[in-house]
Amino acid sequence: MKSLEEIIKTAGHSLEKAGLELIDNPSPCGERSILVDPSSFLALVELMRDDDEIGIDYLSNVTGVDWPEKIVKEKVKVKEMVDGKEKEVAQTIENNVGGYLEVIYHFYSVQHKSGPWTLRMRTGDREEKVTLPSITPIFQSADFQEREVFDLYGIRFEGHPDLRRIFMWDEFEDYPMRKDYEDPDDYEYEPTPHKKVLVRTQRHYEGNDPGK
C-alpha cells in the first residue's frame, strides 16, 4: 500500500498545479487525508484509479462538513518599548478564520482489498463560492451522496447529472445541516427542564421568536 506522501509526490510530478496538502489526524487510528485543490481533484482521482498499486475502484463515503467563520485567539510575544526599554509583552491576536464547507471522500480498492484513502476538498466560502467538481461521472456511488451534501449543506457539484434536493422537498430553502441553521419554531413545551429548551419555549409563547 502506497503511503500518502508517495501519492502526493507522484501527483506532483504528473499534475501541473496539484495543490495537495497532507492533513494530519491526531486520533489514535491516525488515518490521514489529503486536501486537494478542487481544480485538480478529478485528475488526482483518475490518477489514483489508474495507478496499478493503488487502484481505487470503490468510493465508499462522501461527507459534507460545515466550518463556520470563527475567531481563533493566538498568543504572540511582541517586543515593545516600555519606558525606554525593550520588553517582551504577551499579546492576544484575534484572527478571523473564514468559514468554508468541506467534502470528504473515502476511497477503497476492492481489487487489492486495501484502503481507505481519504481526500478532502474545500469551498472558497459558505455563501458564494460553493461550487465543487462532481465525481459522479467517475464513481456512480457519489450520485445520491452528493445530492445529500447539496441538500443539507448547499454545496453545488458541477457536472452532476441530476443535482436537486434529495431528502427535503424542493420548495425548502435552508441548508439544515449547517451549524447556523435555525430550526422552525414548531414545538410548544418540553417537559425536560433543559435551559436551552426552556428559553426557546418562552420565546415561543411570547411570540417573538425570529424563526416563527
Binding site: 422537498w169 424542493d170 420548495e171 425548502f172 430553502e173 435552508d174 422552525p184 414548531d186 424563526g211
Partner: peptide, 10 residues
C-alpha cells in the same frame, strides 16, 4: 403544503 422553511400551516 410544503413551505420554504416549514409546512404551511404548521
Amino acid at each position: 403544503q410544503y413551505g420554504a422553511h416549514d409546512l404551511t400551516p404548521t
